[in-house]
Computed example of a mutant assay.
Amino acid sequence: MVLMTGASAAFDFAAARETSWSEARALAHRAPLPPAARTVPLAAAGGLTLAEDLRTHHPLPAFDTAAMDGYAVAGPGPWRVRGVVRAGAAWGGRLLPGEGVEISTGALVPAGACAVLPVELAAGGEGWVSGPAPSPGKHLRRTGEDAPAGTCLAPAGTRVGPALLGLAAACGHDALRVRPRPRVGVLVTGDELDRGGRPGPGRVRDALGPLLPSLVAALGGEAAGVRHVPDRPAGLLARAVREARDSDVIVVTGSTSVGATDQLRQLLHDAGARMVVDTVACRPGHPQLLAELADGGWVVGLPGNPYAALVAAHTLLAPLIAGLSGRGLAPLPQVPVSGGVRPVPGLTRLVPVAWEGSGARIIGGHRSAFLHGAAVGDALAVIADDWTDGSPAPLVLLAG
């Protein structure tokens, strides 16, 4: 990032174009291109994003297998017991009508078997077993009935979670093609912040330094550290941004408004950055921004108030990380939302909610600087200016 140090034209704050909340989210997602894919072993793939479809190398199941402990039988009973088959072993030969083998769940079913008689329904001894005749195919899992070989089981863009890791292993994969996590550096600005203990007179405790690395990780990014940057003397933020250029994304908290100590917009203007989103028509979190640096990389500006910053992070940072990771923009579920909140003409409100039956209930504690509602809630309800109490609203599920 090339930062100008001489005189430059002042940034025209009045020319900033306010973006709707839904448009800002979409712009942040489609702005970046994901980096090149890499191949990593399964043990290193958790939390990353598939760069290509996950396909099974072999049928699932790979062979006819017993779904219950009991007897694999052929034809009507009673059946002469020819042997025992346990999981991981095989029984050589073919069953003829009136024959069976004792079998364990997951074991290879011998050729000729038509069903499995569960052990709890079986009776007999001295090499014979009897019981109610199972219908053909009962308690058998046939080769490929879950997925034939070559089936796409997860498309590119799917985040790799524990179940997908297990599925990949079951499909015969030892490694996956994935997109790396975006590296996200955090710059927390403000002269008024204390980083430990109870804040002193006229000061506040920094909440965003602890909050943002955890949020970045939950969103699929890699937190590259937190640096605290004083507002004065001027120029410290520009230097901090330069020093954070090993990150794919630089998050700056505070310094996004138009006050005397707010430097970020002027800094980006001087550096020739491309403004993708400059202010969002939402409450809280209005003074947020997303910019692309002239020589690559992204800057996300968040308000300094903690709840407003959280809302802005879910508006711009979450979709940006998804776009950089090659994931789709997460759809927002809609459920009926009830509670005492007033829509604001021309603005989108984001308020914390908790699940209540088949819907969600608005909970208190969501002033711009207060995180209580978000800390105990399940989601943020997206309240449009035409919302009425009890009507459906989209939900942003809270990460973490």
Rank of each mutant, 00 (worst) to 15 (best):
Arg195Ala: 14
Leu347Asn: 04
Leu164Ser: 08
Val73Met: 13
Ala318Met: 00
Ala217Val: 06
Ala28Gln: 01
Ala170Asp: 10
Pro97Thr: 10
Leu211Met: 06
Val129Ser: 12
Val337Phe: 05
Pro136Tyr: 03
Gly75Tyr: 08
Ala45Phe: 05
Ala43Pro: 00
Asp385Pro: 11
Ile250Cys: 08
Ala9Asn: 03
Gly125Ile: 14
Gly254Phe: 13
Glu52Met: 03
Leu167Asn: 12
Ala72Asp: 14
Pro199Asp: 11
Thr315Asn: 09
Leu165Asp: 05
Pro352Phe: 01
Gly296His: 03
Gly6Gln: 01
Ala44Gln: 13
Ala37Trp: 05
Gly357Arg: 07
Leu211Pro: 00
Ser20Gly: 13
Pro134His: 04
Arg198Thr: 15
Leu42Glu: 06
Gly112Trp: 15
His228Glu: 09
Ser130Glu: 15
Gly197Cys: 07
Gly83Ala: 04
Pro118Gly: 06
Ala115Asp: 08
Gly196Thr: 14
Asp246Glu: 03
Gly75Trp: 08
Arg177Gln: 11
Pro35Tyr: 01
Leu215Asp: 05
Val204Glu: 04
Ala330Leu: 12
Leu380Gly: 01
Thr388Val: 15
Pro306Val: 11
Ala223Leu: 14
Thr143Met: 15
Arg142Ala: 12
Trp128Asn: 12
Leu302Lys: 02
Arg183Ala: 11
Leu165Tyr: 00
Gly124Glu: 14
Gly364Asn: 02
His366Thr: 00
Asp174Lys: 12
His366Ile: 00
Ile103His: 09
Ser338Tyr: 02
Gly150Cys: 14
Trp387Thr: 06
Arg232Met: 03
Ala175Tyr: 07
Ala318Leu: 01
Leu60Gly: 03
Ala260Thr: 11
Ala360His: 04
Asp231Gly: 01
Thr143Asn: 12
Val299Arg: 05
Arg327Gly: 06
Ala72Pro: 11
